[in-house]
Write a protein that binds this DNA or RNA. Structure first.
Length: 431
RNA sequence: GUGAGUGUAGCUCAAUUGGUUAGAGUACCUGACUGUGGCUCAGGAUGUUGUGGGUUCGAUUCCCAUCACUCACCCCA
């Protein structure tokens, strides 16, 4: 293996065909689905002022304390590659005074500085939606359902949906106090991290995987048992609606999520086939965030799904044997001109067309066509020029026949659809 | 940030207790086929064994360091 001077930075990925196409397709599936539910695209910068993330994700969150790609630009501004999508969206909505309520979706890269492993990269793709200005539980259920529908449309069958409620401003303090008291009584059993969490964010103890902490947390007061009547009713309606829609879910008392800004409904999609990083995505309600950004009090809910993890979990569609690509083959240099002209004509007609200008022999051109997975070759030789025809060869079946020059576009189209219907081009990812 | 494992041809992997010329499949190139790919047959090319040190008469094999990748902790997408 010869030494490459440059290799990709740790935790980043290259996508070469056909993986690149598959990845784009997943994004396209998401876009289409989101649009089906009335969401519209929002595009925000890949980096923001660092304060945007510190303020929204929480100063004590792991993302902010140790996972951000932060840097100073040449004018000394403090900037950060976005570790998640929501803060930038909220900032942009306020900055542009987008009329609310509004439903927005985004697809794009996010960055976190953590040690890479299966399903976890330093640059990763997120697919997200944010519904701003909708307060009701039916929105929560619809959002949760939409995420489930997305994984379903990718053919992911082992996705489980977990939901929980963590209460609101009114009921959270009561629970927090109860939890703190409970944890302080069992301080000895807790790991170092969890002892710190008691003061900073006791909810996180529920997330801890240390066995003694799990035991200690088993009977700890959960948020759900302390929620106020309003939150309780809200959650019950969310669940009732999920039932009505037929989306299976598990209520998970310990599901609290890593971002500080959530309230009431939280949810997460889990896959068994992902390994340690088993979360396909998650989200929740964040009714206070817009206000904290200096905007008007605005209820909101959203989710972020992992593009890479979706790709990892989704069954691999068989790679198409043939692409809708025509390949023009010339015999002698005298035909290069006509070949080029024909290719341009086909392209103008919307047919992807390629020529091998470099291959000296016909055989080499056919090999190129085969390697490119072209559906057909169109041969131009001295004979064809005299007769005013092209020889059209179907590379899947091997049949070749002469077609009149002015019928070539129609014939190629016909050949494409014939290959499709004969199943020579297996279905793509979405079907 | 912590731990473990793995680095041999473009790819997937071999190489007996350290033994001299590092192999196979596949992919690639050429020819059989001078206007035709995919099949078949016959040939061909390819490696500083990740890198740098060390032990040894001799290292792909053992030791140390380093880099990269992978998995896990952590965290989450």
């Amino acid at each position: 293996m010869s030494e490459l001077k440059q290799s990709r930075p740790k935790g980043t990925q290259d996508f070469v065909p056909p993986d690149s196409e598959r990845r784009l397709q997943v994004g396209a599936t998401f876009r289409r689905l989101a649009e089906t539910y009335g969401y519209r695209a929002i595009i925000t910068p890949t980096f923001e002022h660092t304060a945007v993330f510190v303020k929204s994700s929480g100063e004590t969150s792991d993302i902010v304390t140790k996972e951000m790609y932060s840097f100073k630009d040449r004018a000394g501004r403090d900037l950060t590659l976005r570790p998640e999508g929501t803060p930038g969206v909220v900032r942009a909505v306020l900055e542009n005074q987008v009329r609310m309520p509004c439903r927005l979706y985004y697809v794009g890269p996010c960055f976190r500085y953590s040690r890479p492993q299966k399903g976890r990269y330093r640059e990763f793709g997120q697919l997200g939606i944010e519904a701003l200005g909708e307060a009701g539980p039916l929105t929560d259920a619809e959002v949760i359902f939409l995420g489930g529908a997305f994984f379903g449309s990718l053919g992911i069958s082992d996705c489980r949906t977990q939901v929980n409620t963590i209460g609101c401003r009114e009921c959270r303090p009561a629970h927090r106090d109860a939890l703190r008291t409970y944890l302080l009584e069992r301080r000895e059993q807790l790991c170092e991290d969890c002892r710190l969490r008691i003061e900073r964010n006791p909810l996180r103890v529920f997330d801890c995987k240390v066995e003694t902490c799990r035991q200690a947390a088993r009977d700890a007061p959960t948020p759900r048992h302390y929620v106020c009547p309003a939150c309780k009713a809200h959650f019950e309606q969310v669940l009732a609606n999920l039932d009505r829609r037929g989306l299976p879910y598990d209520v998970n008392d310990r599901l609290v999520r890593g971002l500080d800004y959530y309230n009431r409904t939280t949810f997460e999609y889990i896959s068994a086939s992902l390994g340690a990083q088993d979360s396909l995505g998650g989200g929740g309600r964040y009714d206070y965030l817009v206000e904290e950004f200096g905007g008007p009090a605005t209820p909101a809910i959203g989710f972020a799904l992992g593009l890479d993890r979706a790709l990892l979990t989704a069954p691999k569609a068989s790679v198409p044997a043939r692409r809708e690509l025509a390949f023009v083959v010339w015999l002698t240099e005298a035909e290069i001109g006509p070949a080029e002209k024909l290719a341009d004509r086909l392209r103008a007609d919307g047919i992807a067309t390629q020529i091998d200008y470099d291959a000296r022999k016909v055989k080499g051109q056919f090999k190129s066509a085969d390697a490119a997975q072209a559906a057909c070759c169109i041969v131009i030789g001295p004979d064809e020029l005299v007769k005013g025809v092209y020889s059209l060869k179907n590379l899947a079946t091997g049949e070749q026949r002469e077609v009149p020059a002015d019928a070539i576009t129609a014939e190629v189209r016909k050949l494409f659809t014939e290959q499709d219907s004969r199943g020579l081009v297996p279905g793509t990812l979405e079907s």
